[in-house]
């Protein structure tokens, strides 16, 4: 009898858990489905209650209209250039720095690392005006230089990537490099031939974090770019914002949102393992 009630209680708990998990999962996905659904409607279907989930017929031509109304191709191109530029920079420079902070000892190392890490407390949002002024002094306003170089050199969030990689390099046992040191290999040689091949999962995490940061960036490009032909996606899609465009074309706005969200979701689905591991490493160790 007690055993039976234990099992009943357990079955109840299992059911409740699943119910909750599925409920939350649906609420997570619903906005995306609604976005795609709205993007395929015409303006009359948009304004119907109760909501119509499946647009009949789906209006794929909405997407053509988006490309007619705005220079979406250009925004994509800019976003891709900026994203890959920053990724390249962070991939090289943050990895090198992380290796040095983890495995090389030189005077001032801990101080420099501490300084770098403390920059995580200083978000770009507190530096909007002086950054604008600096970019103006450099003559970089409205150029790819402004969009790529600072982040490529690890400013504004790169410290996290350095931290992430450093944590990883710290876990590699000393034995791996000892024999190479005795053979007279330089630190660069050790980095290149021994450490890098070992660090693949961490580097993959770095790349995807870097991708996410660059693809979704908003405030920084808002400040340093001005013209339509330099806009990245996150800014470009605001051209559809109801008030400013004068009309409220929700179906086109949702189409533009879908087109900007999609690449990131695809990348995430492919590389989610590294992503989640990266967060866990960054969040927990030490």
């Amino acid at each position: 009898m007690p055993k039976g009630s234990y099992e009943a209680k357990r079955a109840f708990l299992v059911t409740i858990t699943y119910a909750l998990i599925i409920f939350f999962a649906i609420s997570m996905v619903m906005p995306f489905l609604w976005m795609v659904s709205t993007s395929l409607k015409d303006i009359n279907q948009v304004f119907t209650m109760p909501p119509q989930w499946i647009p009949r017929p789906p209006r794929w031509e909405n997407y053509l209209q988006i490309f007619e109304l705005m220079d979406f191709g250009r925004y994509w191109l800019n976003t891709i250039i900026v994203t890959f530029g920053r990724m390249a920079g962070q991939f090289i420079f943050c990895t090198l720095a992380a290796y040095a902070f983890a495995r090389l000892s030189f005077p001032g190392r801990n101080l420099l690392f501490f300084l770098l890490l403390s920059s995580l407390m200083v978000p770009f949002e507190t530096l909007m005006v002086p950054t604008f002024v600096l970019m103006k002094e450099l003559g970089w306003i409205n150029t790819y230089w402004a969009l790529i170089v600072p982040h490529g050199l690890g400013a504004f969030g790169g410290a996290f990537l350095v931290f992430l990689l450093r944590q990883f390099f710290l876990t590699i046992p000393k034995e791996f490099e000892e024999s190479a040191i005795i053979d007279g290999a330089s630190p660069f040689r050790i980095f290149w031939s021994i450490m890098l091949p070992l660090a693949k999962p961490a580097l993959a995490a770095l790349l995807i974090f870097s991708f996410r940061g660059a693809w979704n960036d908003f405030t920084y490009p808002l400040i340093v770019t001005n013209t339509d032909n330099m806009k990245v996606l996150s800014l470009g899609i605001l051209g559809f914002k109801g008030l400013r465009a004068g009309m409220t074309q929700w179906h086109l706005m949702m189409g533009a949102a879908t087109l900007s969200i999609l690449p990131m979701i695809l990348v995430f689905l492919v590389a989610q393992k590294y992503f989640i591991e990266g967060i866990t490493v960054g969040g927990l160790k030490e």
């Binding site: 390249a88 150029t143 790819y144």
Partner: peptide, 23 residues
């Protein structure tokens, strides 16, 4: 991975000057 690194360095060196001309 090392190919990727070399590739990105080269691509950066080639692309960046080209991009500024464009501006």
């Amino acid at each position: 991975f090392r190919k990727l690194i070399v590739g990105t360095i080269l691509a950066t060196m080639v692309l960046l000057p080209g991009l500024t001309l464009y501006g």
